[in-house]
Simulated assay, not measured.
Amino acid sequence: MFTDDQPRSRFELSAFTAQGYERGRGVGWQLAWLLVSGVVVRSWWCPGRLRIAVLRSFGARIGRGCVIRHRVRIHWPWKLTVGDGSWIGEGAWILNLEDVTIGSNTCVSQEVLLCTGSHDRLARDFRFDNGPIAIGDGVWIACRSTVLRGCTIGDRAVVGAHSLVRSDVASGQVVYGCGP
């Protein structure tokens, strides 16, 4: 409760319900993934082939010849598609509340964040404003870059280190910093 002399918040966070967000699997499946992910998939000792096999068993669609390093965090593997020959570097975080598609021969470097989730800053209940991420073939997303929800990165594009991508990147385009 606010008194007249206290500023009012823009949001009523207690009204947040996650309405419209579909996790894609039941609670038991989600809990199993969180356990296996934390104990096996992200561990340094887990061989790459086993890591990929476990991800596939939880619904990830991963092509041939992919490399997924340790400490990679994948929120929901059943919302992930990776093409042939792609690499996902150590410490990358794929926060895929919605689908993330990574093309073939694409490099997602160390500590990159692919974030499909957001909130509607104008909504009092701070409801979700999520969107998928699509990354084309032959793309390089350099270390510690962030790609935000709803973005498409075209084939052969390059996203420079420490960049923030908040809108689509055209095929063959090179972006760095806070672009486009």
Score class of each variant (00 low, 15 high):
A142S: 14
Q6V: 14
G154W: 00
E98H: 02
V108D: 00
E12D: 15
F58N: 13
R61S: 11
M1I: 12
W29P: 06
E12L: 12
P47V: 08
L13Y: 12
I88Q: 02
G26Q: 11
V36S: 03
G131H: 10
W93N: 13
R144T: 09
D129Y: 09
A60E: 05
S104W: 00
G172P: 08
I52C: 07
C151D: 01
L113I: 15
R69T: 13
R124W: 00
V36K: 06
I135P: 05
V174W: 02
N96H: 02
D168F: 05
I74N: 02
L114M: 05
M1D: 03
P132F: 03
I135A: 03
V139L: 04
R51W: 07
L35C: 15
G63S: 05
G48R: 14
C143Y: 02
R10Q: 13
C66R: 08
V159H: 00
G24I: 04
S43M: 04
S104H: 06
C46Y: 08
G28E: 09
S163N: 11
L50Y: 05
G103I: 02
Q110M: 08
I153G: 00
G136A: 05
C178Y: 13
P47R: 04
L113F: 12
R121Y: 07
R73W: 12
L31S: 05
H162W: 10
P132T: 07
S163P: 10
L55D: 08
S167P: 04
Q173M: 09
L122P: 00
S145D: 00
S57E: 03
G63R: 07
R49Y: 07
G131A: 11
Y21Q: 10
D120C: 04
R8Q: 14
